[in-house]
């Protein structure tokens, strides 16, 4: 499991981030003290660091620079300073990504995944997800069952992927839309309905009937 270290001095935000990233399958640790930050970060042996800029004792940018001298661990700078200059400075100091508060949480997640993939430490985002009755091939955009397979469009893949991630739970239409929008497919209500319908037909074609169940007024559930 990929280990993420949170360096954030706001206690509440730290805790919520821990819960959130924990839910998404990461091992999360957070620094509670900031008097020896650089050593602590290096000692944590984490796969990725979420680093705040405004920290007590030491500036995040300085920390970033010092860490880069000895380690290649991916660093995402998380800050409330919102201008291009700070972003440029951070990247120059060796940060891999820069994200401003309040961040779009899905984007944060996507950036984490991408960075971890690059450093080969991620086990969260697999190319093939075994869903019991079928296998979802994310990299090739295919549903695979036994020897047959069927191709999915970009949106269909995303919807199914989201349902698979939340298997056994009801997901509302708004949540699905939220997820699609975060990956820059700005679908509306009607398009979503059409996509779900097509997805069901495709699932039926490989012999998976009624896999996606509609819960009236609540949303959908993947069984």
């Amino acid at each position: 499991m990929a280990k993420i270290l949170i360096v954030e001095d706001d206690k509440k935000l730290r805790e919520e981030l821990k819960i959130f990233l924990g839910k998404h399958g990461y091992e999360v640790i957070a620094l509670e003290k900031f008097d020896n930050t650089i050593e602590d970060i290096l000692a944590s042996k984490s796969n990725l660091v979420l680093l705040d800029i405004n920290l007590p004792y030491m500036d995040g940018e300085y920390i970033c620079k010092e860490i880069r001298k000895v380690s290649n661990v991916p660093i995402i700078i998380v800050t409330s300073r919102d201008n291009e200059l700070d972003e440029l400075l951070s990247i120059n100091n060796g940060a891999d990504q820069y994200i401003t508060k309040p961040y779009n949480i899905q984007i944060l997640l996507a950036k984490i995944e991408r960075l971890l993939q690059r450093s080969n430490a991620s086990q969260v985002n697999q190319d093939k997800i075994d869903c019991g009755e079928f296998v979802l091939n994310v990299s090739k955009s295919l549903i695979e069952k036994d020897n047959s397979s069927i191709e999915l469009t970009k949106n269909e893949l995303k919807i199914l992927h989201f349902l698979v991630l939340n298997k056994g739970k009801i997901v509302s239409r708004n949540e699905i839309m939220d997820y699609l929008w975060d990956s820059e497919s700005f679908v509306d209500d009607n398009t979503l309905t059409v996509n779900i319908k097509r997805l069901r037909t495709k699932l039926e074609e490989v012999g998976l009937k009624d896999l996606i169940e509609t819960k009236r007024g609540l949303g959908y559930i993947l069984k």
Binding site: D10, E16, F20, S80, D82
Partner: peptide, 13 residues
């Protein structure tokens, strides 16, 4: 922005 970020995080969770 920090309390806003925290609130959004709470909403997400």
């Amino acid at each position: 922005k920090i309390p806003i970020a925290t609130s959004k995080m709470i909403v997400e969770n």
